[in-house]
Simulated scan of single mutants.
Amino acid sequence: MTPADLSLTVLHAVRRAVDDGALRVDVPPTVKVERARPGGVGEYASNVALTLSRSAGRTALDIAGILEERLRDTPGLQAVDVTGPGFLNFTLRPDAGGELVRAVREAGDAYGSGTALAGVTVRFADLTESRALLVTETVVRLLRSQGADAGFAQGADVGFAQGADVGFAQGADAGFAQEAPANAPAQHEPAREETGQPARDATPQRIHVHPGPYEPRFLGVDAARWALLRAAPQDRPLDGPPLLVQHERNPLFRVRYAHSRVRRLLHNAAQLGFGPAYETPVHAPELLGVLGDHPVVLLTAARHRAPDRVARHLEATADALLAFQHTVLPLGDEKPSAAHRSRLALAEAAGTVLAGGLSVLGISAPERI
């Protein structure tokens, strides 16, 4: 990770903190990162927390703590320390990219699932409006993917799983045991009692949603779901017909096409006699960054009841993958090398994240487009 990569990583952490509502500041255009001074901690340091302190109305130490929480598991960073009045100090990890790729390959589509919300119980009111039901069911899957006990007030997963025109891409109740949704204010999460047992919120919750029709007969399941989930719940749904156009301006097509490109890269590599294996560092900070962000995005989406955050993250992942994919296969008379195997492994990890994210939204990840 170069200083430029690290600067971009810290900037992303600031942006996530603002998006999460943890900080209320204007996101700076850049973040300055310098070599740590002799006798200091780590290899690099940043005073970003001090520069944001006045506009945020909080101490630099508070801000540094918020950013440290969002940086501690970043690929490429071995340690993040807060020193002095609020300096962030960074120790780089020798082979963070390899660790990330291995983590994704080991977890598969479950990469990003966790237990951060274990002990939290959430019940949602039964619904009839199409978009409210779709958003809420997706949020339930996001919450469950993070360990929460989430469902509907009557204890049954109702609505889209049973409707004649509706249903998840994989059928009836697919994915509900493993997945959990996102997008609601923090106060909707039940607090723990002093005994350490999770408190149950007796009042069923509702997610405020701008209504919109679910139209799989006209758009197909994938476009119909994307139209309702990609926009923030309180915003108008997306216009459906443009989502059917196979063009790079169509974000749904771009995301699904990026996944299909990964499958084609793996197929073509096999024909050339090699497969994915992360053996040497790959310089792809943008792609590694979005893959490393995936678990945080799922957790944030669950906490804020915001499936649209997952969709936006999939767009960023697809864009980073499509910009990177041209480097994966050998060109001309070039022979497959450790570099090609490593790039292929990184591309495969990106495909896994795209497939897993689409699954959370109930959208298919095609092998070919």
Score class of each variant (00 low, 15 high):
residue 261 R to D: 09
residue 261 R to M: 12
residue 261 R to E: 14
residue 262 V to W: 02
residue 263 R to Q: 15
residue 264 R to M: 10
residue 264 R to S: 11
residue 264 R to V: 03
residue 264 R to T: 12
residue 265 L to A: 00
residue 266 L to E: 15
residue 266 L to I: 13
residue 266 L to T: 03
residue 266 L to W: 03
residue 267 H to F: 14
residue 267 H to I: 06
residue 268 N to G: 07
residue 268 N to C: 01
residue 269 A to F: 02
residue 269 A to C: 10
residue 269 A to M: 10
residue 269 A to K: 04
residue 269 A to T: 03
residue 270 A to E: 14
residue 270 A to R: 14
residue 270 A to V: 02
residue 271 Q to N: 11
residue 271 Q to S: 11
residue 272 L to P: 06
residue 272 L to M: 15
residue 272 L to R: 15
residue 272 L to K: 14
residue 273 G to C: 10
residue 273 G to S: 05
residue 274 F to C: 02
residue 275 G to H: 08
residue 276 P to Q: 05
residue 276 P to G: 07
residue 277 A to Y: 00
residue 277 A to E: 14
residue 278 Y to V: 01
residue 279 E to S: 10
residue 280 T to N: 02
residue 280 T to E: 12
residue 281 P to F: 05
residue 281 P to N: 09
residue 281 P to W: 03
residue 281 P to A: 07
residue 282 V to F: 08
residue 282 V to H: 06
residue 282 V to T: 08
residue 283 H to C: 07
residue 283 H to W: 02
residue 283 H to I: 09
residue 283 H to M: 05
residue 283 H to K: 12
residue 283 H to E: 13
residue 284 A to W: 03
residue 284 A to L: 09
residue 285 P to K: 08
residue 286 E to C: 03
residue 286 E to D: 15
residue 287 L to C: 11
residue 287 L to V: 04
residue 287 L to D: 10
residue 288 L to R: 14
residue 288 L to S: 04
residue 288 L to I: 10
residue 288 L to G: 10
residue 289 G to N: 01
residue 290 V to G: 00
residue 290 V to K: 01
residue 290 V to A: 06
residue 290 V to N: 00
residue 291 L to I: 10
residue 291 L to Q: 02
residue 291 L to A: 07
residue 292 G to F: 01
residue 293 D to I: 03
residue 294 H to M: 01
residue 295 P to Y: 05
residue 295 P to W: 05
residue 296 V to L: 14
residue 296 V to H: 13
residue 297 V to C: 07
residue 297 V to A: 04
residue 298 L to E: 12
residue 299 L to C: 00
residue 300 T to V: 05
residue 300 T to Y: 10
residue 301 A to T: 03
residue 303 R to T: 12
residue 304 H to S: 15
residue 305 R to A: 15
residue 305 R to Q: 14
residue 307 P to T: 07
residue 307 P to M: 06
residue 310 V to R: 03
residue 310 V to A: 08
residue 311 A to Y: 03
residue 312 R to C: 08
residue 313 H to I: 04
residue 314 L to P: 06
residue 314 L to A: 09
residue 318 A to H: 02
residue 319 D to N: 11
residue 321 L to Q: 13
residue 322 L to I: 08
residue 323 A to R: 13
residue 323 A to N: 08
residue 323 A to E: 10
residue 324 F to I: 06
residue 325 Q to L: 11
residue 327 T to R: 15
residue 327 T to P: 00
residue 329 L to R: 09
residue 329 L to G: 07
residue 330 P to E: 02
residue 330 P to M: 01
residue 332 G to M: 03
residue 332 G to A: 09
residue 332 G to D: 01
